[in-house]
Computed example of a mutant assay.
Amino acid sequence: MPITLPATTADALPFAAACFSILYGLFALFAPGVFLRMAKLQPIGERRVGLSEIRGTLAGFPLGTGLVTMFFFDQPFMQMTLGAGWLFVAFGRLVSILSDDASSFGNWLWLLVNLVLAGACLAPVFGLVAA
């Protein structure tokens, strides 16, 4: 089975979002301490069980969905799956900004990144990008 690369903008957008998701997941998987410091967080005390949450949830989900979407970038269901995931990450971030007094430049920037990733996956599905 030959590996195909995207040839149109409608295919390139979810492919690029999948590649970013994979890099995001790999970074969280292999450098969870740095990932936490960049988010201005840290494990409490000497127990480092919180790192398993970073590696499991914040690394595993984007890494897994990103890999599958990268291989099946032209499948609308995969585009919707990754797009919905990033859209709900953005929604959770917005709720936090509004509810938790977490309005910072970094949070607004990441909200924008999350929305761009969601849009890159969902725009082709809903016909907003010409094939």
Results as ranks from 00 to 15, higher is better:
residue 34 V to Q: 12
residue 34 V to C: 09
residue 35 F to A: 13
residue 35 F to P: 02
residue 36 L to F: 09
residue 36 L to E: 14
residue 36 L to N: 10
residue 37 R to H: 11
residue 38 M to C: 11
residue 41 L to C: 10
residue 42 Q to H: 11
residue 42 Q to F: 12
residue 43 P to T: 14
residue 44 I to H: 09
residue 45 G to E: 02
residue 47 R to Y: 05
residue 47 R to W: 00
residue 47 R to K: 11
residue 47 R to V: 11
residue 48 R to K: 14
residue 48 R to F: 01
residue 48 R to D: 08
residue 49 V to M: 12
residue 49 V to N: 14
residue 50 G to C: 05
residue 50 G to D: 13
residue 51 L to I: 03
residue 52 S to V: 03
residue 52 S to Q: 06
residue 52 S to P: 00
residue 53 E to V: 02
residue 54 I to E: 01
residue 54 I to G: 02
residue 55 R to Y: 04
residue 56 G to K: 05
residue 56 G to T: 02
residue 57 T to C: 13
residue 57 T to Q: 12
residue 58 L to E: 08
residue 59 A to R: 06
residue 59 A to K: 07
residue 60 G to H: 04
residue 60 G to Q: 06
residue 60 G to W: 01
residue 60 G to I: 06
residue 61 F to E: 03
residue 61 F to K: 01
residue 62 P to T: 02
residue 62 P to A: 02
residue 63 L to E: 04
residue 63 L to S: 00
residue 63 L to C: 02
residue 63 L to W: 09
residue 64 G to M: 14
residue 65 T to P: 00
residue 66 G to E: 09
residue 67 L to S: 03
residue 68 V to I: 15
residue 68 V to W: 06
residue 68 V to N: 00
residue 68 V to P: 00
residue 68 V to T: 13
residue 69 T to R: 05
residue 69 T to A: 13
residue 70 M to P: 01
residue 70 M to Y: 02
residue 71 F to R: 05
residue 73 F to C: 05
residue 74 D to M: 03
residue 74 D to Q: 12
residue 74 D to L: 02
residue 75 Q to F: 03
residue 75 Q to V: 07
residue 76 P to G: 06
residue 76 P to M: 10
residue 77 F to W: 10
residue 77 F to H: 08
residue 78 M to K: 01
residue 79 Q to P: 14
residue 80 M to L: 15
residue 80 M to R: 13
residue 81 T to Y: 09
residue 81 T to A: 15
residue 83 G to E: 01
residue 83 G to V: 11
residue 84 A to G: 15
residue 85 G to Q: 09
residue 85 G to C: 07
residue 86 W to A: 02
residue 87 L to M: 14
residue 87 L to A: 15
residue 88 F to H: 04
residue 88 F to A: 04
residue 89 V to Y: 10
residue 89 V to Q: 03
residue 90 A to Q: 05
residue 91 F to P: 00
residue 91 F to W: 12
residue 92 G to W: 08
residue 92 G to M: 10
residue 93 R to H: 06
residue 93 R to T: 06
residue 93 R to A: 03
residue 94 L to W: 10
residue 95 V to Y: 13
residue 95 V to C: 14
residue 96 S to R: 10
residue 97 I to K: 09
residue 97 I to Y: 09
residue 97 I to R: 07
residue 98 L to C: 07
residue 99 S to D: 10
residue 100 D to H: 10
residue 101 D to I: 00
residue 102 A to E: 12
residue 103 S to T: 09
residue 103 S to H: 04
residue 103 S to R: 10
residue 104 S to Y: 05
residue 104 S to C: 05
residue 104 S to V: 12
residue 105 F to C: 02
residue 106 G to Y: 00
residue 107 N to Q: 13
residue 107 N to M: 09
